[in-house]
């Protein structure tokens, strides 16, 4: 059903006069609220916090000016088909806008980790290797995070190197692609710009029948030593044999940078 002339004009006016301002308002409010409640890190890298917040404040001024503007606003006249399409767009955008304001912010889940393949990218820089080497030198192996262990594992899979080192890592549970029954990863996402480029990294843990006790996406702290993986099918030659697994709260900054 195509809109009549009056609806047509009203919709056109809405799309040109108010849609941009309202969508900007939604983004500005969401950004400021995330920034003030300390959750902006769920979406973007900390290096952008200051710029993003500053532009959100400027955006708020422009949005307020946009609402306050009283001058007559001329809009283009379009045919009913184009206006119908605009109408569909308006509804779709309203749904997205509302979702942006009311849905609670959260991290990416293991569905995305599986889809992006754990340890297929996200690491491999010299900095990571250096950092790991320094921490290894201190002898305090429990200070090493998922990131450092992953970069060590990428360099050496000799079990002798790990035999005297106890790892203690925090991350979320995501199953191994090859042997999901017996092996899971303690995983984190590495973010370089925003959540879109998040790359999952993780250290493998061997625990037969782990699903009985832990759920995918649970945050856990795993303590144990690396050994040759008992699982022949697993993606990695080594895996942690856990001494202790604690379910913990999601950390304040779930991503690593």
């Amino acid at each position: 059903m195509l809109p009549d002339r009056k609806t047509n004009a009203a919709l056109r006016y809405w799309a040109e006069r108010w849609q941009g301002v309202l969508l900007s308002l939604v983004v500005v409010v969401a950004t400021l609220w995330l920034g003030l409640s300390g959750q902006l890190g769920l979406y973007i890298h900390p290096r952008y916090f200051v710029f993003t917040m500053a532009m959100a404040v400027i955006g708020l001024v422009l949005v307020a000016a946009g609402f306050a503007r009283r001058r007559t606003f001329e809009v283009e006249r379009t045919g009913p088909v184009e206006t119908t399409l605009t109408g569909v767009g308006v509804v779709l955008l309203l749904v997205m806008g509302v979702a942006m304001v009311i849905v609670p912010p959260t991290t990416l889940s293991s569905a995305t980790a599986t889809q992006r393949e754990v340890n297929s990218g996200g690491l491999g820089t010299d900095d990571d290797a250096e950092q790991a080497a320094t921490l290894i030198g201190t002898g305090d192996f429990e200070q090493l995070s998922v990131r450092e262990w992953v970069s060590l594992l990428a360099q050496s899979s000799d079990p002798a190197f790990y035999s005297d080192k106890t790892a203690q890592v925090i991350g979320f549970v995501t199953p191994d692609a090859q042997d999901p029954e017996n092996v899971f990863y303690v995983a984190r996402f590495v973010v370089t710009c925003c959540a879109v480029d998040a790359q999952p990294i993780g250290v493998p843990v061997y625990l037969s029948g782990w699903q009985a006790e832990y759920e995918v996406d649970d945050w856990v702290q795993v303590t144990g030593r690396f050994d040759l993986s008992v699982s022949a099918a697993a993606s990695d030659p080594l895996a942690i044999t856990p001494v202790e697994i604690l379910v913990v709260d999601q950390p304040n900054d779930p991503y690593v940078y």
Partner: peptide, 8 residues
Amino acid sequence: SVIIESVP
């Protein structure tokens, strides 16, 4: 995340 990154 794309929107919040790009809008500024």
